[in-house]
């Protein structure tokens, strides 16, 4: 007991501890990512070309927006299955407004607001009733997808506004705009989760709702915020997709939420809440992005790609789970 006690002494945080703690936490993901990276570098001719790498970054950006928001949701102990439909819904709003001649920045603002609003509604229902987030957001997914099909009659909207097409298709120097947004979203999420009081409150909420409430944390507000944030990120994702495709397709974003969940869990964030972080999610999105890209470069049949992706995700998540169990055992009980 004596030897345990003296360790409570005041210690200065060590410099360079950030990288070390990043590596101990995410060693599995980093190694996995490097293996995939090395394999593809040797197995394909053009994986390492700057053209291809920028391409991968552009492809993963939309998944990154929603995965960042989803990380906060999983940390709070929730889940969001409505992402794909919110993308289509807000993409449709932007598309209609743009076709009606509304300036792009108003279209974009309305679209993001619409995403935030539907997310807020989900968050409101979840926080004021005790319905499971799984069911609430799944219902929302179905309602919004239906709405999009009803309003568009399943027709594609073709876009012509230059500013709209620049939003997702253009670039800043050699960096595509979607990648710029991606970096901003990652930084913002990191700041919320790791540097703000709100972030601590999120970890507390997911770690033990009751204790959080008894500590005076306003859990309901946090829930509304994260689902609204998730809706907003889905809308951003929808805008970028729509812009890049130069058209709004009613089936836009179908299945997106599953890729996001896979990426976040692959990044070590627990579905049980209270644990995880956005850096892991970045790694998770990168892994899934490289796998998708690599399978394309290897010219694998797209049906086989689904199977391959599923197996790889399963293995990666299993390895992470093993590592966590070992770490838990090492810390005592």
């Amino acid at each position: 007991m004596e030897k345990e006690k003296k360790n409570t002494e005041f210690k200065m945080p060590k410099m360079g501890g950030g990288l070390r703690s990043f590596l101990t936490q995410y060693i599995g993901q980093v190694v996995f990512l490097l293996l995939v990276f090395l394999f593809l570098s040797f197995a394909t001719d053009n994986f390492l070309s700057s053209q291809n790498l920028i391409n991968v970054m552009r492809q993963i950006s939309t998944n990154m927006y929603v995965s960042c928001a989803l990380t906060m949701i999983l940390i709070c102990g929730g889940i969001d299955l409505s992402t794909g439909s919110v993308m289509a819904f807000s993409g449709m709003i932007a598309g209609f407004l743009s076709l009606a001649g509304v300036p792009f920045w108003i279209c974009a603002a309305c679209s993001l607001l619409a995403g935030a609003a539907v997310g807020f509604v989900s968050g409101f229902i979840i926080s004021s009733t005790n319905l499971p987030p799984f069911i609430v957001t799944y219902s929302m997914q179905s309602i919004l997808r239906g709405t999009v099909y009803v309003i568009t009659s399943a027709n594609v909207l073709r876009l012509t506004d230059e500013a709209f097409l620049e939003f997702g298709g253009g670039s800043l120097g050699f960096i595509p705009w979607p990648v710029v947004y991606m970096i901003l979203v990652i930084i913002a999420t990191y700041m919320i989760l790791n540097l703000s009081r709100l972030g601590r409150h999120m970890y507390a909420t997911g770690g033990n709702v009751k204790a959080a409430e008894f500590s005076g944390i306003r859990v309901k507000r946090i829930r509304r915020f994260i689902y609204a944030a998730s809706g907003t990120m889905a809308a951003l994702s929808g805008l970028v997709y729509t812009s890049r495709n130069t058209s709004m397709q009613p089936a836009l974003g179908t299945g997106m939420e599953m890729d996001a969940i896979a990426a976040v869990v692959l990044g070590g964030t627990s579905m049980g809440g209270g644990q995880g972080g956005v850096l892991g999610t970045v790694l998770g999105v990168l892994i899934i992005g490289f796998i998708n890209n690599g399978l394309n470069l290897l010219r694998m049949n797209s049906f086989w790609q689904y199977i391959c992706k599923g197996v790889v995700i399963l293995i990666a998540v299993y390895l992470d789970d093993m590592k966590n169990k070992r770490m838990l055992r090492a810390t005592g009980k």
């Binding site: 601590r200 970890y203 507390a204 033990n208 009751k210 204790a211 959080a212 209270g274 644990q275």
Partner: peptide
């Protein structure tokens, strides 16, 4: 256990939460 602590978080996190 149900209302007081965040079990998966650290002593530091729990002590300073409020």
């Amino acid at each position: 256990r149900e209302e007081g602590i965040i079990p998966l978080q650290t002593v530091r996190f729990n002590t300073t939460l409020k």
